[in-house]
Nucleic acid binder design. Structure first.
Lengths: 242, 242
DNA sequence: TTCCGTCTGTGCGCCATCTAACATATAATC
DNA sequence: GATTATATGTTAGATGGCGCACAGACGGAA
């Protein structure tokens, strides 16, 4: 367990930790620890999943790829959520690709068990449904942000979203990769990131990004970041009774 | 009922018509017919709904308004869906405004009854959850489209989405209104719509739009339209058993 | 008919981002 | 240490959409 002390507990995932002890314990029997590596494709459009995944230290992006090969991220899932909601929504597959954006750990749960737990109609179901709403809020705000906000603000938002989901100030990702998420060009990301670096907010070098000044990112981001954060806090905040 | 013959049945709504007869009949006791007028605001961000609404001939847009007053549509709900999903997802409110985009009829259902029906865990729940997935697909594709596709294609998509949800080839909406939905300027919509009119695809005049050549719209639209349509058909298609 | 409000057309300068090509720098490998 | 692949920097020109300003054009009200 050495080196994994902080991420080897399912309760590192906010959905699992939101469960009452009784439900948590029951689920624990079926949760399998696992790791995702950077760039790993968890599912392709139309692909069937055998498991859902509750990330603890890993982060997963949902991407759509157009016929011409352009890509844009529609959603981001870390220790705040679960990968594979289509399995309990009843559609089984989705139109997106799920890619590991930040390598790390997760817990898997068999689709069959997931459906059984969900069908019990108890607090597990409530937590999952509430997450769906948080997820919808995130996608909606992404739609708005993509239309109305310039790339530098979107970059700040994306760095903050990623930073929120890991324990480190260091992120491993190239500008090319980021441009695919933001749906822009690599050069545009270079320029925007360069401005943030000049301002002392971040430092980057060949795929290594350091968040030097989180407040600085928050000062440059558009409102979209805060809107989603507040809604998530409202839905899952500590004072919120289920 | 004269003049409403085609829209006064709840089964005009695809979610309600997807229910087995037994569930449909039980729900029927609680469904109240009603009308929405153009521009009517159904709910504000953070506003609590007492009812959910199943549109038959009306169409409702979900809009986000930024601090500077810009707007962008995140979702569109007509006879294919239901307004107020937050009520059974557990969040009760959302960050969006819901505005009537096309006047028409709908059926209302009390929040309390909705929750009871949902909690039964039967086919009603399954239909609602499957709709959630279709809805997520729509928002995701909007996020992609907003980022990657020019206004003329987005306009085509939006006209097709609206056309799909009404029985008429005539739409009542100004270019100013459309620009608010597309998150662009009125002038940009004028130019794009002008091109479509020159091509003989639509005709418009002071808030009246005629769809003259639906195939023409389909020829100009981006893939985003088809992706959502196919996913919705997959989830709710006639051959799909629940 | 006349007036007025609303809706649409159009031109011009501007800026963010795109396309494309190429230059440089660093890490990994030999 | 030299080579190679990958990551980042920097041009220059094209373009789509923005902001603004104003000109018609149509419809309803007086």
């Amino acid at each position: 367990m050495a080196g994994f002390a902080k991420t080897c507990y399912p309760s590192e995932n906010h959905l699992l930790s939101a469960l009452p002890d009784k439900d948590y314990q029951r689920l624990l029997l079926h949760l399998q620890p696992m790791s995702f590596s950077l760039g790993e494709v968890i599912s392709e459009p139309g692909g069937l999943l055998d498991y859902v995944y509750f990330p603890t230290s890993s982060v997963v992006s949902l991407l759509y790829t157009t016929q011409e090969g352009s890509t844009a991220e529609t959603g981001l899932i870390g220790n705040d959520g679960v990968v594979g909601v289509a399995l309990f929504l009843g559609g089984d597959t989705t139109t997106n690709r799920a890619v590991v954006q930040i390598a790390g750990d997760a817990f898997s749960l068999k689709a069959k068990i997931l459906r059984e737990e969900f069908a019990r109609g108890g607090l597990f179901q409530q937590v999952m449904l509430r997450y769906i709403q948080a997820f919808i809020t995130q996608i909606s705000q992404t739609a708005t942000c993509n239309r109305l906000h310039p790339i530098e603000k979107r970059l700040c938002r994306w760095l903050l979203l990623s930073h929120d989901r890991v324990k480190s100030d260091k992120l491993l990702m190239t500008q090319e990769f980021i441009s695919n998420m933001l749906g822009g060009r690599r050069e545009s990301v270079t320029v925007a990131a360069g401005r943030l670096q000049d301002a002392g907010v971040i430092h980057y070098s060949r795929g290594h990004i350091d968040i030097l000044d989180r407040k600085g990112l928050e000062a440059n981001v558009c409102e979209c970041y805060q809107v989603v954060k507040e809604e998530t806090d409202r839905l899952f905040g500590k004072n919120r009774k289920l």
